[in-house]
Simulated scan of single mutants.
Amino acid sequence: MLVREAMTSPVVTIPPSATVRQAIRILHEHCVTALPVVDEPGRLAGIVSEMDLLQGVFEHDPRAFVRPVATTASPSPRLVEEVMTREVETVRPNTDVAVLAETMMKTRIKSVPVLDGSTIVGIVSRRDLIAILARGDARIRDDVLAAIAEYGAVGARWDVSVRDGAVELRGRADESAQRIADVLARTVPGVTRVSIHG
């Protein structure tokens, strides 16, 4: 599966000049965990996450402590550009989702903007990947059968079974038809593995 099939689009973005409070409200209203930060010409300037926005926004409640707690002398950040991450991991629409998932696990990044050239066309979050994996086996089976029927080799008949996202194809087909069926099954959202038995 490719990133373009998993990404959320259109993307909710925010300018660097927005306030931290505005960014917090946008995150909350759109139920997202990160916002790409876009400068005036529309280029990606950074990304701001829930964690970035929580920096210094709460003061200690004196009721929670026996002794008074010292407050920080420095003011809390006011603008998105003060808290955003400037070095942003990005992907292209035709990137393999498996490669993206590995990158997200290694780097512990929760959301990755999708760029087509310099244009932001989507964003992929961990939640998007979980939603794909949460698809039911019956739906995956139907989608695999539909893909094979639409694009598959003429004359090849397949028995398709799916268990926990793992697809098993059984049928009599030549090597070329097997390759086509394998590729088509792997493009279906929610498929984790494909095996073919003649």
Results as ranks from 00 to 15, higher is better:
residue 106 K to F: 04
residue 172 R to H: 15
residue 118 S to F: 05
residue 148 I to S: 01
residue 40 E to I: 07
residue 115 L to F: 12
residue 106 K to C: 00
residue 57 V to G: 00
residue 144 V to L: 05
residue 181 A to M: 05
residue 170 R to S: 08
residue 174 D to R: 10
residue 188 V to G: 01
residue 162 V to P: 08
residue 127 R to G: 07
residue 22 Q to C: 01
residue 187 T to H: 06
residue 130 I to M: 12
residue 59 E to T: 14
residue 171 G to E: 04
residue 18 A to Q: 02
residue 116 D to V: 04
residue 181 A to G: 05
residue 23 A to F: 06
residue 98 A to Q: 11
residue 66 V to R: 15
residue 109 I to H: 10
residue 140 I to A: 04
residue 58 F to W: 14
residue 191 V to C: 04
residue 119 T to F: 10
residue 97 V to K: 06
residue 48 V to E: 00
residue 11 V to K: 00
residue 75 P to I: 00
residue 182 D to S: 14
residue 98 A to E: 14
residue 195 S to T: 15
residue 38 V to A: 00
residue 132 I to P: 02
residue 160 V to Q: 06
residue 188 V to E: 05
residue 109 I to M: 07
residue 178 Q to P: 05
residue 54 L to E: 11
residue 103 T to W: 10
residue 68 P to W: 00
residue 80 V to E: 03
residue 128 D to K: 02
residue 84 M to K: 02
residue 46 G to V: 07
residue 64 A to F: 15
residue 108 R to A: 13
residue 109 I to T: 15
residue 149 A to G: 13
residue 35 L to V: 09
residue 46 G to Q: 04
residue 2 L to T: 14
residue 135 R to T: 13
residue 71 T to L: 14
residue 198 G to L: 11
residue 187 T to N: 03
residue 111 S to D: 09
residue 134 A to M: 10
residue 160 V to C: 08
residue 7 M to D: 03
residue 192 T to R: 15
residue 98 A to D: 13
residue 189 P to C: 03
residue 28 H to R: 15
residue 139 R to C: 07
residue 39 D to Y: 07
residue 51 M to V: 15
residue 163 R to C: 09
residue 122 G to Q: 03
residue 36 P to W: 07
residue 183 V to D: 12
residue 91 V to H: 03
residue 114 V to G: 06
residue 95 T to D: 11
residue 128 D to L: 02
residue 76 S to H: 13
residue 44 L to T: 08
residue 45 A to F: 04
residue 162 V to D: 07
residue 139 R to G: 15
residue 156 A to L: 03
residue 22 Q to S: 09
residue 134 A to G: 05
residue 61 D to Y: 08
residue 126 R to M: 02
residue 118 S to G: 12
residue 167 V to L: 06
residue 85 T to I: 12
residue 24 I to G: 07
